[in-house]
Nucleic acid binder design. Sequence first.
DNA 1: TCCCTATATAGCAATCCAGCAATATAGCTT
DNA 2: AAGCTATATTGCTGGATTGCTATATAGGGA
Lengths: 104, 104
Amino acid sequence: MSLIEILKTLANENRLTILEWLQDPVAHFPPQKNGDLIEHGVCLGAIARKLGISQPTATNHMKVLVNAGLVTPTRNSNWVYFRLNKEAVSLFLDDLQNKVATQK
Amino acid sequence: MSLIEILKTLANENRLTILEWLQDPVAHFPPQKNGDLIEHGVCLGAIARKLGISQPTATNHMKVLVNAGLVTPTRNSNWVYFRLNKEAVSLFLDDLQNKVATQK
DNA sequence: TCCCTATATAGCAATCCAGCAATATAGCTT
DNA sequence: AAGCTATATTGCTGGATTGCTATATAGGGA
């Protein structure tokens, strides 16, 4: 994903919050019955509920985040779990630094 | 300016390009008669011409960048020059890092 | 099989954004 | 004063974005 696409992805309050939460799922979400918070990630419904948005809207935000490569989905029957793609985030931060800040 | 506002500011191809150019004005713009590229910055018309957009559109983009604190305007009679606010850019990068990346 | 739960898709409304042309403002220069 | 140049403002359009409700799909359990 290009730098500009990732910036558009992050330029939304809810998506930025989701990314922040996914950094430390255990700190932000209750334990799950059907999937480990760390290993598999956080399930879609939990994210929608915590943000106070409808399930379709949450589905859409997660699609954007996955599309940008920032988050990785795992499906288990009819649950989908999302975890942060830390490598992609750090690559993005490097790219951005190279683009808008004078090299140190 | 808040992190999210700055992200929205950067989530636009033309504004991102302007920021990139303003990092090194001498490399990207011809010398100016009425203001030093380094000291005062690049004049609005030069930016509009180089991007191939109308002057009002350029005025608007610069307003957004100034508003975000990323760029500083200097008026000299009826020219306005813009230079990068490097400190603000680096503060933003730190903020973003703290927000979306696990602390190192 | 029937229902319940989780997610996806479709379709719609409201809002925001990026661009433009036209025009206003303001400072030089002749 | 008249004209030229640089920027700002206004008002408009098309398209993207965010949200919703309603509905579809699909798995699991009674």
